[in-house]
Computed example of a mutant assay.
Amino acid sequence: MTDIQIVLIQVLQSRAALLVAPMLFFSFLGQPEFYLLIIPLLYWCLDPRLGLRLGLIMGISGGLTIALKIAFHLPRPYWVSPDVQALGSHPSFGLPSGHAMEATTFWGLIAVAARRRWVWVAVTALVFLIGGSRIYLGVHFPTDVIAGVAFGVVILLAFLAFEEPVGRRVAALPLSRQILVAFAGSLALALASVAALAALGDWQIPASWAAGALERSGQPIHPLDLQNVMTAAGFFFGFAAGAAAAWPRRGSMCIVGKGSDHLLRYGFGISVAGAIWFGLGLLVPPDPVIAVYVAQYLRAAAVAAWVSYGAPMVFARANLMGRRV
């Protein structure tokens, strides 16, 4: 099965060499960084409720992606085959494809909210292209992508089933309890990966995988590292806790105004978010590991709290919210 998939990747790469740029573009549309540009735009400028839902589901799917990757601990194509070109490089395990999984949850939730057939068609095509780009770039087997879409569908359906009853119960709690629930949820996301890592026991990454990845991409791998899951968990906590504090004032969060108002608000908010992320990144220690994980968690939580709470409060006080709706 693996040999057949490698042959398929070889055929794609050899007979469609002109597709490198488009495939890199579609791959970017599945990057967490892209979603982190879109979520604030929706939350601050267009549809706060949809932005909130997307922020929560992306924190959940981002955290579970790492747990599943560690649980399956399978290689990427360019790690194991010298015949596959490494047109991209990633240090984590291959299955499931995080791009396919998160594209399914993110764009799928947008399609559910839009309730338009053409949106469903566009989202299906986009998820297909994002997943296909990962195969073409040599960073995923087709089975990785199929698994990513399948897990993404499960997460999306579970989110849709539980968001209303859980949301009502959480909203009825005092703010301090809501923040505690958000923290507990973020710990659950982190512990899922810790449990998957513990289940590996004394399993070791095959030396051939590390050597093959380094030889073909020039980048080392560290698939057992938990920094990404700490980032996802921190983002979930910061976003959920900030939204809990800001949501009672949601009437001041969504506006109908001039395009310049939206542009000013978004440009300022994203600039501050970037400054927080990169500024706190300078404070992340190189070691020990526990300190790195805690710092990464707090860094992501700070950025997410700025997006969900800090920025809307600054906009409101600076009279950048426009006409309230």
Rank of each mutant, 00 (worst) to 15 (best):
L320A: 01
F34P: 04
T124C: 14
S97R: 11
P312M: 05
V307N: 03
R134S: 05
L18S: 10
Q296R: 13
L24D: 02
M101G: 01
L283D: 09
L187Y: 01
V272E: 11
A190R: 02
L187Q: 09
L264V: 14
L50Q: 09
I130T: 03
L137R: 02
A150Y: 12
R324F: 07
R116C: 11
G322F: 03
P40K: 12
E33P: 05
A192E: 03
Q227I: 08
S271Q: 04
N228E: 15
V121T: 11
P22A: 10
L12D: 00
V11L: 14
A147H: 08
K258L: 10
A67K: 07
A67H: 06
P77R: 02
A188Q: 02
I9E: 00
A188K: 02
Y43Q: 01
F159T: 04
T143Q: 14
L191G: 02
V289G: 01
L156N: 06
A213N: 06
P40H: 10
L282D: 05
I6F: 12
A304T: 05
M101Y: 05
G234E: 08
A182D: 03
L41T: 09
A213T: 06
S208V: 08
C254P: 00
I146W: 14
G251K: 09
T104E: 06
A147V: 09
G212C: 10
A301V: 11
V11N: 12
R168M: 11
A100E: 05
R250N: 05
R299M: 12
H262D: 05
L175A: 09
I146K: 07
K258R: 14
P206G: 12
I6R: 09
R169V: 09
W118T: 07
Q219T: 13
L214F: 13
L283I: 09
E164L: 13
I38W: 11
L18Q: 04
V303M: 15
L12F: 13
P96V: 08
A195W: 10
L42H: 03
P206K: 13
S176F: 08
E215D: 09
I155T: 03
A318W: 14
F141G: 00
R324P: 02
F278N: 10
T65Q: 14
V149F: 11
G218T: 13
P206A: 07
Y266K: 04
G279I: 12
H262Y: 15
G269F: 10
I4H: 11
A211F: 02
L36N: 13
V154H: 01
I130R: 00
D225F: 06
F237N: 02
L156G: 06
A316K: 11
G267D: 03
F93P: 00
V145F: 06
V307P: 00
A240E: 01
G218I: 11
D287N: 06
G51E: 02
W79K: 03
A301Q: 01
G279D: 12
F239T: 01
V153K: 07
A122C: 07
L64R: 05
R265Q: 10
I60F: 04
F278M: 12
A246W: 08
F183C: 12
F268V: 13
A246P: 00
P96T: 09
